[in-house]
């Protein structure tokens, strides 16, 4: 069973990102959206938690990045940008979605 984990809270404010990463097994994926997109940026005090994930695919919702003025070159290496359609595709591609709200 493969899982798509979603994170929509700032990693500096809530433990959603930390919990999602801790529960993301090999073969699963994590999608960051809304205030969760800050977790996908490099050079922060929490970047290592995301960038060290092995065998976990990382996605971020493009429109939420743009809204917040986060340029794509700030993203942790390997993070892929998806649009709303891409979000839906991921939700159908994985067996289930676990939302870390």
């Amino acid at each position: 069973m493969s899982i798509l984990h979603t994170v929509n809270k700032s990693p500096f404010e809530k433990s959603s990102m930390a919990s999602a990463m801790a529960h993301a097994a090999d073969g699963s994926a994590v999608l960051f959206y809304e205030d969760g997109v800050y977790a996908a940026t490099k050079g922060t005090s929490l970047s290592d938690t995301v960038s060290s994930a092995d065998g976990v695919k990382l996605y971020v919702l493009g429109p939420d990045l743009k809204a917040r003025g986060v340029a794509e070159d700030r993203l942790i290496d390997g993070v892929q940008v998806v649009d709303y359609t891409g979000f839906v595709d991921l939700a159908t591609e994985y067996d289930k979605v676990v939302a870390w709200v």
Partner: peptide
């Protein structure tokens, strides 16, 4: 996280 409020280049056109 308040520092994010004044990030430049914000564009909410798609949200």
């Amino acid at each position: 996280d308040g520092v994010y409020q004044i990030m430049k280049g914000q564009d909410t056109g798609e949200v």
